[in-house]
Design a protein around this nucleic acid. Structure first.
Lengths: 105, 105
DNA sequence: ATACTACACCTAGTATTACTAGGTGTCAAG
DNA sequence: CTTGACACCTAGTAATACTAGGTGTAGTAT
């Protein structure tokens, strides 16, 4: 699955997944796969740097869970992250409407 | 309008616009703006290299129109371009469905 | 006359992004 | 005791859209 067209929308997807509750990176990958019906099967090299980026932008915060049964870094939305998610959602709707209108869909 | 999220979908939009008939670069920009309801107001530095890329991939062919009233390079879809457009359309539908499912839309 | 705008094309360089391709380590199952 | 799933990480790469310039014509306004 070549997801070249994912660019610019990954943040929205990650924030959406984490809006349903805190999760660690590996679980985020699994959620993306399941919630998208298998469409988004993204490599770790995509997810982890993206989570770090979102955290550095103060949209996520994280903490280490030790021994449950493995150590995990759990991410959750910050208040700012929730606001940005709502904004990204509007942008996505506007974008997809614009594409549909342009393509006659 | 920051169109960072356009990445990976521009080719689909250009092919879609040219599916309604041959057009030159400047007119493509105008069509994109109008058909998208003003959402896609793309700079020339985006459009021209993209058209060249699509032509080099044999999805478009072009010819010069001299003095009508200015010289223009007119682009149209090749047969391969039409096939790829149909494919890109399916990919877009699958992608947008997957995003909507993931985001709970 | 001349400045300005719209039309019409072009490209070198930049920033951002997602991905590739590696790496570390734990734990359970066979 | 090795394999595979779990779980994390990052340096470097390729692709993409954009910025910021450039050229030139035609028409309109001052």
């Amino acid at each position: 699955m070549n997801n070249e067209n994912l660019k610019g929308h990954l943040d929205f997807l990650l924030l959406s997944v984490l809006a349903t509750g805190p999760a660690h990176g590996y679980a985020v990958i699994e959620s993306l796969r399941q919630q998208s019906g298998g469409h988004f099967d993204l490599p770790e090299g995509t997810i982890y740097p993206a989570l770090h980026r979102l955290e550095s932008q103060d949209l996520l915060k994280s903490y280490w869970q030790e021994n449950f049964p493995r150590r995990r870094r759990v991410y959750e939305l910050t208040p700012k992250g929730k606001k940005v998610l709502a904004q990204r959602r509007e942008e996505w709707l506007a974008f997809s409407n614009a594409v549909n209108a342009t393509a006659g869909i």
